[in-house]
Amino acid sequence: MIEFKIDSLSDNLNKELQEKIDTKTKPIGSLGMLEKIAFQLGKIQNSLNPTINNPNVVVFAGDHGIADDGVSFYPKSVSYQMLYNYMEGGAASTVFAKQHGIKFNVVDAGVDHDFDPSLPIINRKLAYGTKNYRLEPAMTKEQCLEGIKRGAEVIEEIHQNGCNFIIFGEKGIGNTSSASLILSLLGDISLEECVGRGTGLDKEGVKSKFDLLNEGLSKYNQSKDPIDVLTHFGGFEIVMIVGAMLKAAELKMTLLIDGFIITSALLAAFKINPKVKDYCLFAHKSNEQAHIKMLNIMGGEPILDISMRLGEATGAMVCFPLIKSAAQFMNEMASFQDAGVSEATEEI
């Protein structure tokens, strides 16, 4: 098992952080969620002046054997085609990254395609997609552990370039199926409650998807060990995200968490080391029905609820300006004392 040494967040600045927030020139609590974000940023960085340095988004991509059974509205080939779309800047995630000045990275964790080495795609391919877990485990335990290691290495390289704020995204047709199974096993929730529309399935499509996943689940030994669950039902992109998240927390980076699939990776990382959650901000509540169940397990409070379910880090990037605003007011907004403004007095 790969070990990650994640420190507990210190409470030594809690009082000072809250006092700094409360004494800005505003009524206490009037900036709502921005105040909670600023407080958490300060705790993660152990600083009264938290900053967002060289923010990066990393989209990990991988194919899933279960996609051959038709669990998705789209064919598996869309995975590699979307990576070309990223390279051309035509995807929602690349558009938002450009809009907000976030460096965009894409990792081939296990796409069933060979990309030209000259393309700016980070090659960490474990294999050409996972096996079909309706019939056999998605990967070997060795592949799972190697994937966690490779994901950690990607984040370490990004961190060395001065990044302290990381956004995770994914691409892989069929990966909502993996996320549903991960939630069911690690969250101890019935599979039926975990299976949703994914890429847009209708009621009959969701029923067929459930039947296929349930068949795979019936052949599993029901272990709740996160490595066992990832080995049997994960995707190569998901296991790399698990490693990337654990390493980011070890490096004291702030993690901005996207939707259903990314949160399933966090749930697995959380089961490996619960301290990883303390370094996270939760961007939004996905319109995928079971996402809120994942958030509730970890006590994650979503910042936005705008009915998004695209994935690829899009929800997180739409949320990113709010994070910047939280850091901005913390560092630049005057206090009552600085501005010479009278503070509120108690009512008699």
Score class of each variant (00 low, 15 high):
H159C: 06
D69Y: 04
Q160C: 00
S72E: 10
F96Q: 03
L213V: 03
E250H: 05
K207R: 06
L34P: 01
V154T: 09
A248D: 09
K171N: 05
E16C: 01
I238E: 13
S118C: 02
T130M: 08
A38C: 07
I257R: 11
S177Q: 01
D225G: 05
K103W: 00
M330P: 02
V195C: 11
A38I: 04
I52K: 05
L119S: 09
V106K: 01
K171F: 02
G216V: 09
A138E: 08
K103S: 15
P274Y: 02
L304Y: 10
H100I: 00
F233I: 06
K277Q: 12
Q222T: 07
V242P: 10
Q143S: 09
L212Y: 01
V229Y: 00
G162H: 05
Q289F: 05
I292M: 08
D211V: 02
K76N: 11
S335H: 13
S335F: 10
L126T: 13
F270H: 13
C280G: 11
I148S: 14
L48G: 12
Q143G: 10
K141P: 03
A326M: 08
A339V: 06
S178F: 04
K125H: 08
Q18C: 00
V58C: 13
I262S: 15
F260T: 04
G311I: 02
N54H: 14
N175L: 11
K20P: 01
H284T: 07
F282S: 10
H232N: 13
N164T: 01
K219S: 07
G70F: 14
L31P: 04
A344E: 13
N273Y: 00
E192F: 06
V107A: 09
L191V: 04
E88I: 05
D211W: 01
L217Q: 02
N123P: 01
E16R: 13
I66E: 09
M33N: 04
I257H: 12
N46H: 12
E312G: 05
K203G: 00
L34T: 02
G234S: 10
V318K: 05
L255S: 12
P274F: 02
D305A: 15
L256E: 09
T23M: 11
L31C: 11
G32Q: 06
S184Y: 14
L251P: 02
A269Y: 08
L186Y: 13
A244V: 08
K149T: 12
S47Y: 06
M253W: 04
S184R: 14
L251H: 05
S8K: 15
